[in-house]
């Protein structure tokens, strides 16, 4: 292979590779030598192992072993109340009173559907997807004084909360987001700046499917006919006149929903958002379209 070919080949390779940065470079080969353990007069003393005993002989005991005595970790009886707590999904609470206060102080725009992105955007809701936070639990504090007519999407809601929102002519739905899409919803700007294509939202895990397919919880995977029946049923239970959404002047806002595979309102998976030139890059490739339509 001629040198010209090599240059061209490496240039084409460079074009497809990511930009050279601190996280993808390494030292020159042979520039570093690992230190060898010295013997006798060449630094052969204790080698950081101390004098005598377990440390020097390197017979490391298993963790918690107390050389024969009943170890501490077995001395106390086990309690399983919190078994698997670090796997459980956490839903940090947001009360209806605080949501109303956000609306009153113009932090949340009522003329658009509210989702976790618009709640996090207020800066008044602590949300950490890396700490097993899976979204908002809308709680019923301030349900009596709640007045706003909104289209809101949360991750967990009680019956009273659903009633409080539907009484005022609003719409509530519960939806599942996988941790990766929650990171995008927490800070969409940083994600768009990274130049990556918007991914698909994942379907809920096995133990969450029941919640998100039930019409009583207004799940996003529930049958719409069953949801409208459940709305009427709840209105009868709590004794209020259910406002008809179809006749509402804000019908377009109230009827806006996301696709189960969609993360952001109005933006489809596979699109790349260019914030600098204010344009959207949409895939036309057959392979990509097939991937993102699944």
């Amino acid at each position: 292979m001629g040198s010209r070919q090599v240059i061209e080949k490496s240039l084409t390779l460079l074009r497809s590779l990511p930009r050279v940065s601190l996280n993808n470079i390494r030292d020159n080969p042979g520039s570093k030598r690992t230190q060898k353990r010295g013997r006798a007069q060449h630094g052969g003393d204790k080698h950081g192992c101390g004098n005598k005993g377990s440390g020097q002989r390197q017979n490391f005991m298993r963790i918690g072993y107390e050389t024969g005595t009943n170890p501490f970790y077995l001395r106390v009886p086990q309690e399983h109340y919190y078994k698997g707590h670090h796997y459980r999904r956490q839903y940090p609470p947001l009360s209806l009173r605080i949501l109303q206060e956000m609306i009153d102080t113009d932090r949340v725009d009522v003329t658009a559907p509210i989702d976790i992105a618009s709640i996090v955007k207020t800066g008044l809701y602590n949300f950490f997807p890396d700490q097993k936070h899976f979204g908002i639990n809308l709680t019923d504090e301030g349900a009596d004084t709640f007045e706003a007519k909104i289209n809101i999407e949360v991750q967990w809601a009680s019956e009273l909360v659903i009633a409080a929102i539907e009484k005022k002519g609003g719409v509530i739905s519960t939806a599942y987001y996988d941790p990766h899409s929650l990171f995008l919803l927490k800070n969409p700007k940083i994600f768009f700046e990274s130049g990556q294509a918007i991914p698909r939202r994942m379907i809920p895990p096995q133990d969450a499917i029941e919640y998100y397919t039930s019409a009583e919880n207004r799940g996003y995977l529930a049958d719409p006919d069953q949801i409208s029946q459940a709305r009427i049923k709840l209105a009868q239970k709590y004794g209020y006149q259910l406002p008809i959404i179809e006749n509402d002047s804000d019908y377009n806002i109230l009827s806006e929903r996301k696709d189960p595979r969609q993360i952001f309102y109005g933006l489809e998976p596979g699109w790349v958002i260019n914030l600098k030139d204010e344009c959207i890059l949409k895939p036309k490739d057959e392979e990509l379209l097939r991937f993102y339509s699944l």
Binding site: D104, T105, D106, R107, D109, A112, A117, S118, K121, G123, N187, P188, K189, F192, F264, Y265, G266, L267, V272, I273, N274, L275, E278, C279, I280, L281, K282, P283, K284, D285, E287, L288
Partner: peptide
């Protein structure tokens, strides 16, 4: 991959909606 570049104000509204506040909005 094959792609197209679009500039559509109706679609861009959805992007602007997601951008963080530059200042805390006046009440």
């Amino acid at each position: 991959y094959n792609y197209e570049i679009t500039k559509n104000p109706t679609e861009w509204k959805f992007v602007e909606r997601l951008m963080p506040f530059k200042t805390i909005p006046q009440v």
